[in-house]
Design a protein around this nucleic acid. Structure first.
Lengths: 142, 142
DNA sequence: ATAGCTGCAAATGCTTTGCAAGGCC
DNA sequence: GGCCTTGCAAAGCATTTGCAGCTAT
């Protein structure tokens, strides 16, 4: 797991992504990458930032999330129409989605094996394989 | 593959789903289930119906698609934020998604094997496993 | 007759964009 | 100083909803 706790790490991470280390981006990066792996929506991250006392506009949150995604710091995932999550864990892994609570949990990549892949059309390259295991009726412990 | 070509088949299919066989639902069902397997968006189905000379409001298309989905005649799948496809193939299978063209293709369920499943929280039941293989850079033949 | 369905248009919710002001290098 | 960023508010898009009128049974 990526460890980026110090301010310098955060600054460097943003700079390495080819982005200016502005106050907003650093604050958001700190929220995203200081703890363990996270799955957040733009809305969630926005209210978190407000809760922590620094204000970032929602538009900037969206912009930043997409910039981080393009830079490879985040992975976007779509579970429901009209709701995008951003996953701070960019290693190969899959997801367990609790339909009732909307909670998302990682599944280690090697817990789900993909067998034989279908033949791809000539020239096509796999950019990613998303596996979402949808679960019902029982909310996770928390 | 489901074969439902005659009007009677269509009527029965809708009736079996617990829905009244109205003109609109029958027309849409005919578009959806007369050919082979299809992946359509609400918007697509709506313009198809207009093209065929019968008019159905977009709201009704959405309602109908969701009613069919709830009844188990369709399967909804989300590949991109803000775009829902409805798949007339409800058997176990997965998808190849061409990111450039937005085209979706079925992958036979047995071409992708799921190995060991992660332990689920107590009481949880898998409602579905979605596997989307995202492909880049090459549009399919058609 | 009546319960269910449809159509329209307005409302919703998430996301993106345009543009003026501000901040990093 | 110059260019990238930000913030706000407005626009955008897909989808849903409210309600009056219509239709299958």
């Amino acid at each position: 797991m990526r460890q980026a706790v110090t301010s310098n790490d955060i600054i460097e991470m943003v700079r390495d992504a080819g982005l200016r280390p502005t106050r907003q981006r650093l604050s958001l990066a700190r929220l995203l990458f200081s703890g363990g792996d996270r799955h957040v929506t733009a809305e969630q991250l926005h209210s978190e930032s407000l809760g922590q006392g620094f204000s970032v506009s929602l538009a900037t949150v969206y912009n930043t999330l997409h910039q981080f995604t393009t830079a490879g710091l985040l992975r976007e995932l779509v579970v429901d129409a009209g709701r995008s999550y951003f996953d701070t864990n960019i290693s190969a892994h899959h997801h367990l989605y609790f339909e009732d609570s909307g909670i998302l949990r990682d599944v280690a990549g090697d817990n789900v094996a993909i067998g034989e892949l279908p033949a791809l059309p000539e020239g096509a390259k796999i950019s990613r394989i998303d596996i979402i295991i949808r679960v019902k009726d029982c909310a996770p412990a928390a």
